[in-house]
Simulated assay, not measured.
Amino acid sequence: MSTTLPPSPIDAEAPAGAPDPHAAAPDRAGRPDRTTGPGSARTAPWGADPYARALRAGRGPLFLRRNDGWLLPLDVERWCSRADAADLSALHRCEGPVLDVGCGPGRLVAELASLGHRALGIDVSEAAVARTRRLGAAALLRSVFDPLPDEGRWGTLLLVDGNIGIGGDPAALLDRAAGLLAADGLLIAETAPLDVDERVRVRLDDGRGAPAGTLAPACAQEAAAEPFPWARIGAPALLRYARARGWRTAAQWSAEGRTFVSLRRPRRPVRERRARISSHSAESANSEAVSSSQLPR
Rank of each mutant, 00 (worst) to 15 (best):
20 D>R: 01
20 D>M: 02
20 D>F: 04
21 P>V: 11
22 H>T: 14
23 A>H: 00
24 A>I: 07
24 A>P: 12
25 A>V: 13
26 P>L: 04
26 P>S: 00
26 P>A: 02
26 P>R: 05
26 P>Q: 01
28 R>Y: 08
28 R>I: 07
28 R>M: 09
29 A>Y: 01
30 G>M: 07
30 G>F: 05
30 G>W: 08
30 G>P: 06
31 R>W: 15
31 R>E: 15
31 R>S: 15
31 R>K: 14
32 P>W: 06
32 P>C: 09
32 P>G: 08
32 P>M: 14
32 P>A: 12
32 P>V: 11
32 P>F: 04
32 P>E: 01
33 D>R: 13
33 D>M: 07
33 D>V: 11
33 D>W: 06
34 R>E: 12
34 R>L: 13
34 R>Y: 12
34 R>G: 12
35 T>D: 13
36 T>N: 09
37 G>M: 02
37 G>C: 04
38 P>R: 08
39 G>C: 11
39 G>M: 08
40 S>R: 05
40 S>K: 01
41 A>I: 12
42 R>N: 14
43 T>I: 15
46 W>T: 09
46 W>Y: 12
46 W>Q: 04
46 W>C: 08
46 W>E: 06
46 W>A: 08
48 A>L: 06
48 A>P: 07
48 A>Q: 08
49 D>I: 01
51 Y>D: 06
51 Y>R: 07
51 Y>M: 10
51 Y>H: 04
52 A>P: 06
52 A>E: 11
54 A>Y: 09
54 A>C: 11
55 L>H: 01
56 R>P: 00
56 R>N: 09
57 A>N: 02
57 A>T: 02
57 A>R: 09
57 A>E: 14
57 A>H: 06
58 G>I: 01
58 G>S: 02
59 R>G: 09
59 R>Y: 04
60 G>P: 00
61 P>C: 07
61 P>L: 07
61 P>T: 04
62 L>V: 04
62 L>T: 02
63 F>Q: 08
63 F>N: 13
64 L>N: 15
66 R>I: 03
66 R>N: 13
66 R>L: 07
66 R>T: 04
66 R>H: 14
66 R>M: 11
67 N>E: 14
67 N>T: 14
68 D>F: 06
68 D>N: 12
69 G>W: 06
69 G>I: 05
70 W>T: 15
70 W>M: 15
70 W>P: 06
71 L>N: 14
72 L>I: 13
72 L>E: 14
72 L>G: 09
72 L>C: 14
73 P>L: 03
75 D>A: 03
75 D>G: 02
75 D>Y: 11
75 D>M: 11
76 V>L: 04
76 V>N: 03
77 E>F: 00
77 E>I: 07
77 E>R: 09
77 E>W: 02
78 R>P: 10
78 R>I: 08
78 R>H: 15
79 W>I: 04
79 W>E: 15
80 C>S: 02
80 C>W: 01
80 C>K: 05
80 C>T: 11
81 S>P: 03
81 S>V: 00
82 R>I: 14
82 R>K: 14
82 R>A: 13
83 A>Y: 11
84 D>T: 01
84 D>M: 00
84 D>S: 01
85 A>T: 08
